[in-house]
Write a protein that binds this DNA or RNA. Structure first.
Lengths: 218, 218
DNA sequence: CCATCTTTTGATAGTTACTCTCATTTGAGA
DNA sequence: TCTCAAATGAGAGTAACTATCAAAAGATGG
């Protein structure tokens, strides 16, 4: 059994997933699972910082977190997932869906994105920076971004589809989701590139303005 | 030593890479290398068709092509590369660079892309279709698209940079290349999805019009 | 507190993509 | 034909996964 994302299981999760984790009343079993998951991630990041991502084996991570390698793979389907998965998708989806349905999707994305990131930065700025930096530096992680669930493309696409009240997304939706998703990734990577000094809202505004203009001037 | 792409080594490759392969005067050694490469790919695709991509091992492919597994990896750095690498990049780059430098990049891409694909379809339609279908169906391949060299993003970015006569691409260029690159992939995937029935020029036109309009109506 | 049921865990063995090294073969060029 | 460089094959090794199964530990009803 793959342990499910904690927030996804909650009936009405607050918009801030961090709070969700803290507030939720958990059974002993679930608290242990959470601790294991956190320990795995914490030790992994420590080892990554010390010796690099590639030079750190899953075996080492499991040992540091004092679980067996088997258990590691029960928590993270792949080593990549230590860095690539997060629990923010539900928040982003609800932020997007709460925008008016007739608003240009680009605008919805801009607003939802800046709002969500602002909230995250308050609590997890450093961790976020570390993660994104890892993604920029390790080719394997960059590649993993395109895997199911890790790419904003799919998130955007699901919202577009649901917002239109249809089953299968149209081709225009796929193109839109892919392009805005790719731009979103660039914005986040750029933010990490400047060590988070660049204001994320400005960055997103600038990026999406470029998209909205049809790449005017390029 | 990794064997380099045949066309890349030629001083002035014709626009059609297929012809390039046929016309080039090759030494016995290079002809053998070419034959080995072709045999590996041919046997690989045959096995993929029979038993699927995941169920086919590198060992099987090497055996079918009558080379050792060691040799396989001298020709293809990864199993993915059997499907993901091609020799069209130089042609695409030169097509892009031959467009006027002050033309909107989106237009340059549209023209270069339709031209290149049209040429390819004449000779390698079936193979192209098979390849793209594989990419759509195998998650691992889809992910590999984001790896160095396989994504149009990097190609676009290099052209943008060179065209501007600068060393490091600007952020706007990165966003543009990423977004147009993602849309390009969607277009190609869509083409394969309709089994190549949809006219590729129409598809590209339509796609890039959407991008140029700033996703009007979505 | 106990007995039972279910979930989580660890141990083990296996697969496969990929790397490294070194000896052998084979084409190139004089 | 001789010599050199490039290409190959063989073998050993690494590490990310996968599958299976028995043991441990939390949940639950009495």
């Amino acid at each position: 059994m793959t342990p499910e994302q904690p927030t996804a299981a909650l009936p009405d999760a607050p918009t801030n997933p961090v709070q969700a984790l803290l507030e939720a009343p958990l059974s002993l079993r679930e608290r242990k699972k959470l601790k294991t998951r956190q320990a795995l991630r914490r030790e992994a990041y420590r080892l990554f910082a010390e010796q690099g991502y590639q030079n750190t084996t899953v075996e080492q991570i499991a040992a540091a977190a004092e679980v067996s390698p088997s258990t590691f793979f029960r928590y993270f389907a792949a080593k990549e997932d230590l860095v690539l998965t997060d629990e923010y998708d539900p928040a982003m989806i609800s932020a997007l869906l709460s925008r008016p349905a007739d608003e240009p999707f680009l605008t919805s994305c801009r607003e939802a994105l800046t709002g969500l990131i602002r909230a995250l930065l308050q609590h997890e700025r450093q961790e976020l920076l570390t993660r994104v930096r890892l993604v920029t530096e390790v080719p394997a992680l960059r590649a993993g971004l395109d895997r199911a669930g890790n790419n904003p493309r799919e998130l955007y696409l699901s919202v577009l589809t649901r917002r239109a009240g249809i089953e299968e997304p149209t081709y225009e939706m796929r193109v839109t989701a892919a392009a805005i998703g790719a731009a979103t990734i660039e914005a986040v990577l750029q933010w990490a590139k400047t060590d988070g000094r660049e204001d994320i809202a400005d960055l997103v505004d600038h990026t999406f303005a470029l998209l909205g203009s049809g790449f005017a001037g390029v």
